[in-house]
Design a binder for these strands. Structure first.
Length: 492
DNA sequence: AAAAAAT
């Protein structure tokens, strides 16, 4: 899909492969009127935005990995009487010339994407209300909050004014890369607040105070910097939680996130809070609504969340050996020309075992999980993003946000289940994992490995939850069946 | 009991 709405990854990919043709997306103007429509009974205005009226330039639909974006409805709920007009161009947003130049020249954007068009005015219009924004995987959420942060920073004030908190080190770094690119001409300073070196804590302890205007990092490091008074919050204007549902979940980073939020609000009650994610389950949605106040919200129905450009499959397998065999004979051999592949497993142990098996068979795969030291993690991610490796085995460390446009195939070697109740699928993790393929409307495929009755039950629950049937590959040891599936997904 | 971030 066009890089119009692309968030990240373009940085590493564009220079190395033929530039993807850009279908033009033109959002119809009538979106605006509906969006600000107010309900009479309450303060809240609920409106269904039918934003599928987009035009694609037929002549440019040439890349085989591109497809039309799914049409979906984003439900907008605004409070109060602040009118928001959807931005049909970036000029509508009153951005600085330097920032506009970054959008056009560096990011190669032409027009705001759907989520950008709706959310940016909400972020950038006084009184700068808080925002909970849900949007599809690979639809451009990162650019929304990066642009939001850059546009709200006062370039003349050399102090931290925007803070973004992410669940992993990798995601922080990736978001920083987007910020650097988009903000290239603005002169706005930035710093990544993540652990620096593994094994040696001395260096990170002696980290100097942060004066950068935008800070992006992980919860622990940010918390420590704040408690050490090395990260001042007095001038903080925007606080962003990327993957916000996870950042505010009980089994996620709820404690750290609340602590950081409260520390900022104690000194600074008017700091705008922005929550972005592709998923917000009911429990988190409920909790989140108590954390932020007087907020606008954008939501997508869970049935509309599966990307239509992604073909999902399930493969029935008799045993563990067959799993390895399928990866070897059907994925690694057949998949040579289908772009990059991520294989998700549930545990670090599982990652190591699979890695060893494939290496023993003579295949080149790399593996990432949280037990590796930071240097190795950086190296493996960089090699994958540079296209030097084709197959990456990963735990859920990369389940969320990881943006590599050449990933066309995701394999759920283990199906994601809830930790506290293993007979419940982890719907959110499932959605995030498969969202690593089909970035930005590209075509992609997902193979779910089904070995036990339990797996089958989990798979069925996932299908019904998202109301999206998953086709079955008739025979796990038929090369033809896999070819047919990959062809149907548009990858062969 | 998991993953991740950190102490």
């Amino acid at each position: 899909m066009a890089d119009v709405t692309e968030t990240t990854g373009a940085s590493t990919s564009e220079d190395k492969q033929p530039v993807v043709p850009e279908p033009k997306r033109l959002w119809s103007e009538e979106v605006e009127d509906e969006e600000v429509q107010q309900s009479t009974s309450e303060e809240k205005a609920v409106s269904e935005l039918n934003v599928d009226a987009l035009a694609i330039d037929e002549n440019k639909k040439v890349n085989k990995f591109l497809d039309e974006p799914e049409d979906s409805r984003i439900q907008a709920v605004t409070t109060g009487d602040t009118p928001y007009t959807s931005a049909s161009t970036f000029e509508d947003l009153n951005l600085s010339p330097e920032l506009l130049k970054g959008l056009y020249v560096e990011m190669k954007f032409h027009k705001p994407s759907k989520i950008q068009a709706i959310s940016l005015p909400m972020i950038m219009t006084p009184p700068y209300k808080d925002l909970i924004a849900q949007a599809h995987n690979g639809s451009g959420k990162t650019t929304c909050f990066v642009l939001g942060m850059l546009s709200r920073v006062d370039p003349k004030l050399q102090r931290p004014q925007a803070l973004c908190i992410c669940p992993t080190r990798e995601l922080s770094i990736q978001n920083m890369e987007v910020l650097l690119k988009m903000g290239k001409y603005t002169g706005i300073s930035s710093e990544c607040a993540v652990p620096i070196e593994s094994g040696n804590n001395d260096r990170s302890r002696s980290r100097p105070p942060i004066s950068a205007q935008v800070v992006i990092g992980t919860p622990g490091t940010i918390k420590r910097l704040m408690s050490q008074k090395k990260l001042g919050v007095a001038d903080m204007k925007v606080l962003v939680f990327d993957e916000a549902d996870h950042m505010l979940a009980k089994d996620g980073f709820q404690d750290d996130s609340l602590r950081i939020m409260k520390d900022i609000q104690r000194f600074n009650s008017h700091c705008q809070v922005l929550l972005f994610s592709a998923t917000f389950d009911e429990a988190v949605k409920n909790f989140v609504s108590k954390v932020v106040k007087d907020y606008n919200q954008l939501f997508v129905k869970k049935e509309d969340l599966s990307l239509e450009s992604l073909k999902q499959y399930k493969v029935n397998l008799p045993d563990e050996l067959a799993k390895i065999q399928v990866v070897r004979d059907r994925i690694l051999e057949l998949g040579e020309n289908i772009g990059q592949i991520i294989i998700f497993v549930n545990t670090k142990h599982s990652a190591k075992m699979l890695h060893q098996s494939l290496v023993d068979l003579g295949y080149e795969v790399t593996t990432i999980h949280g037990a590796l030291n930071l240097e190795d993690r950086d190296k493996i991610v960089k090699e994958f993003k540079d296209g030097l490796t084709q197959v990456l085995i990963s735990t859920d460390v990369l389940a969320r946000g990881f943006d590599q446009q050449q990933v066309n195939l995701v394999i759920n070697y283990d199906l994601p289940v809830k930790f506290e109740n293993r007979s419940e699928p982890h719907y959110e993790v499932y959605l995030h994992r498969i969202g690593r393929a089909g970035r930005f409307g590209r075509k992609g495929a997902v193979f779910n490995f089904i070995m036990t009755d339990h797996d089958l039950m989990i798979m069925r629950k996932i299908e019904s939850y998202f109301n999206s049937p998953v086709a079955e590959i008739p025979s796990w040891n038929s090369e033809e069946d896999f070819k047919v599936a990959l062809k149907a997904a548009g990858l062969l």
